[in-house]
C-alpha cells in the first residue's frame, strides 16, 4: 500500500481556489520534490496535509496508510506519522527546547501504547542526535527557537524529525535562509532518515537543495495544478530554463 495518497485535492482559502486537483502517490522509500514559482500553492499543500486551520478542502482526499487524514486533528496526524518541517519555525519564549522535545516524544509514545521516556534515556538520545547534527550542547536548554540563527532553527527541525521518526516528512522550503554549510548538515540529517518505511515530500523553490537531497520524482506545481512530473533531471532543466514555459501552458 502507498504511504501517502493525495487524490484530486482541491483547497480554497476564503473564496479563492488555491489547489485545483492534485494527485500524488508517495511510496515507502521515495523522495518526491515539489517545485514551482512563488504563490502557486506549495505551502498550501504542506499546511493542509499537516492540518493548519484556515483552509477549506472542497474536493478530494489524503490518505496516510489508507486512513483519512482529514478526519484527524493536527496533533493526531502528527502522532500518526506526518511531520511538517516548517519554513519559518516559530519562536516560543519560556518553553525550553528540552521540555518541548520530551513532551512531543511522550505524546507519540503514549499514542503507540509505550511508556514515557525516562529522563536519562532522553538526555542520552538527544545528546547523541544533537552531536550528529553539529548542534551546541546548550541548545536544548534554551527556549524553543528563541534567538536561534536560521541554520540553528532548521537543524532543530531536523532534530525533531529524527526524534519523532515520522512515516511521511514534508519539508517546506527547508533551504530558505540557509548558507551552504547549514544546507549540507540539514541535508545529511534528512538523508540519514531515508528508509523504505518512510517517504519525503520536499517542497522547494530552487534546485540547490536537490543536489543534496536527491529526489526520485520531481513535480512542477503551477497555478494549483501539477504541470509536469519527471525524474531528478527535471529539476536541472528547471534550473536552466525557469518555470516560464509551464506557466504559459497552465495559463
Amino acid at each position: 500500500m502507498a504511504l501517502l495518497e493525495i487524490k484530486n485535492l482541491h483547497v480554497s482559502v476564503g473564496d479563492r481556489e488555491i489547489l485545483k486537483g492534485i494527485t500524488l502517490t508517495l511510496n515507502g522509500g521515495e523522495v518526491h520534490a515539489i517545485m514551482g514559482p512563488n504563490g502557486t500553492g506549495k505551502s498550501t499543500l504542506s499546511n493542509v496535509i499537516a492540518g493548519r486551520e484556515g483552509y477549506t478542502v472542497t474536493q478530494g482526499e489524503v490518505l496516510l496508510d489508507g486512513k483519512d487524514v482529514f478526519a484527524m486533528a493536527a496533533d493526531e496526524r502528527a502522532r500518526a506519522g506526518i511531520f511538517l518541517a516548517f519554513q519559518y519555525p516559530v519562536e516560543i519564549p519560556g518553553v525550553s527546547t528540552s521540555s518541548f522535545l520530551k513532551t512531543a516524544i511522550n505524546a507519540k509514545r503514549r499514542a503507540e501504547g509505550h511508556k514515557e521516556i525516562d529522563a536519562m534515556e532522553f538526555l542520552k538520545l538527544v545528546k547523541a542526535k544533537t552531536k550528529e547534527l553539529g548542534m551546541a550542547d546548550d541548545m536544548i536548554k534554551r527556549p524553543l527557537n528563541v534567538g536561534f540563527s536560521g541554520g540553528e532553527k532548521k537543524r532543530a527541525e531536523v532534530l525533531q524529525m529524527t526524534l519523532l521518526e515520522p512515516r511521511v516528512a514534508i519539508l517546506d522550503e527547508t533551504d530558505s535562509g540557509l548558507d551552504i554549510d547549514a544546507l549540507k548538515v540539514v541535508s545529511d540529517g534528512v538523508n540519514a532518515l531515508r528508509s523504505k518505511d518512510r517517504a519525503f515530500l520536499v517542497i522547494t523553490h530552487y534546485q540547490r537543495l536537490l543536489d543534496y537531497i536527491v529526489p526520485d520524482h520531481v513535480h512542477v506545481l503551477v497555478n494549483g495544478r501539477i504541470a509536469v512530473s519527471g525524474g531528478k533531471e527535471l529539476a536541472l532543466e528547471l534550473e536552466a530554463e525557469g518555470y516560464a514555459k509551464y506557466q504559459g501552458a497552465a495559463a
Binding site: G51, I92, L164
Partner: peptide, 18 residues
C-alpha cells in the same frame, strides 16, 4: 504556537498548558 505544537503531536490541552 498552538499549530506548531500540534504539528509535533502535542494535544491542544497540553499545548495550551505549556
Amino acid at each position: 504556537h498552538l499549530f506548531f505544537l500540534a504539528a509535533r503531536g502535542i494535544d491542544p490541552a497540553t499545548a495550551r498548558m505549556l
